[in-house]
Design a protein around this nucleic acid. Structure first.
Lengths: 217, 217
DNA sequence: TTTTATATCACGGAAAACCGTGAGTAACGA
DNA sequence: TCGTTACTCACGGTTTTCCGTGATATAAAA
């Protein structure tokens, strides 16, 4: 073993240019071999029914079945590849979420391609891997709670507030929310007010966008 | 001439992985040489102050100065590269717009990397280039207006409507939009009304979510 | 030339959102 | 027991959104 066995990698991303690019980068790596590619989540699952790889580079935003759904599907299975999540943006919460459901690594697309190679080798060896940009974000997310804060906003919300926020993001108005939750309009308005304060947005538009960004809808 | 002169290419995109990928792909092309890269619009303009290239691969969504702004800047200049726009999504209206302000080609990121090579060679020879996916969209955009329709809501919007929708999704209220566009509040309200009708949503929340889903923010 | 599409503006009224302030209850932990 | 947090509700007033209806100007398309 050693020279003989290459790390088998599958790449899944709906941007074909990116797949080709990563492919080209990995072609220069002797220890790595790209054995398959997919353009959406369904293709990924289909491919793994009859094939296998050591590592899977998985984009979050994909048509038909997104990265999260694919990840959850793999979680049910025994013989699964080490999965490195590829995301357009650094988001500590997203990292937490995907690591909890079985991802082994996290790469932002803005990072350098050498980090892909690093990531593949690291997760193949059994360790977790985070791209440098997200590492620093994770670190700084521990030192908030006071001064800087950043965007731990989501965790500030109570369950009830999340519930109401979800309804707002579904285009429900205050009266409709009140009726569907069997509470007073005044109460809903209070919650809305608190949400706007907590999330530091200007109006319902800000609330809706926050909900959407945090995948509450 | 012929073998000696390579096509000089500059790549601008805020996703470093993508730059590295394209770089790797183009490295295998004898006729093409990548002479520079940028991660945002300002860098592009800075680079072209002291350097030059035959072709510029230009991403639309970039921090600091977006692709459109860069394109407009180049339009004022005499000795400019042939510009190929790189976009995350196919949008016939966007294609029209960028071609009008001097772009020579349009590539969606989901297209295959061979098309980048094709695009570079084509625009270098003086012709325009469109990726296949957008070609078919352009063609079908001529034959709609009747039957199928689908949910091409986005293309239903006029430029002004898109502009206003973007501002709504940025939490601007009607007065603020009116002031920033130097038009009457009444006009903005009319536009908002038309947007709600066209997109078949209930309120600004629906508008904001639509804008977000279509990556207008 | 007529029609259509786009962008502009106006008015009035109803509905909803926004904002501050205050207050009662229940649950939990220090 | 006391303090905190979450959830509930109320009131009054301002601002904004929502909705219909109608009008003008312009430029492109039929």
């Amino acid at each position: 073993m050693g020279k003989l066995k290459k790390i088998k990698v599958h790449i899944a991303d709906d941007h074909k240019v990116l797949i080709d690019g990563i492919n080209a980068v990995l072609k220069t790596e002797e220890q790595i071999e790209v054995v398959g590619c997919s353009l959406n989540g369904e293709q990924v699952l289909q491919w793994y029914k009859e094939n296998n790889s050591d590592v899977l580079i998985l984009d979050i935003n994909m048509p038909k079945l997104d990265g999260i759904a694919v990840l959850k599907e793999f979680q049910k299975q025994d013989n699964r590849p080490s999965i490195v999540i590829l995301s357009s943006y650094d988001d500590v919460k997203l990292v937490k979420e995907v690591m909890k459901i079985g991802a082994k690594g996290f790469l932002a697309k803005k990072c350098a391609s050498e980090q892909i190679v690093e990531a593949i080798k690291t997760v193949y060896s059994g360790e977790n891997y985070f791209s440098k940009s997200i590492q620093s974000k994770i670190v700084s997310s521990f030192s908030d709670s006071n001064g800087n804060a950043e965007k731990n906003y989501f965790n500030l919300l109570t369950d009830r507030e999340k519930e109401i926020l979800t309804l707002i993001a579904k285009e429900f108005n205050t009266r409709e929310i009140a009726e569907s939750l069997f509470i007073s309009i005044n109460t809903v308005e209070t919650h809305r007010k608190n949400l706007i304060k907590k999330l530091q947005v200007k109006n319902v538009v800000g609330l809706a966008l926050f909900a959407h960004k945090n995948k509450m809808v």
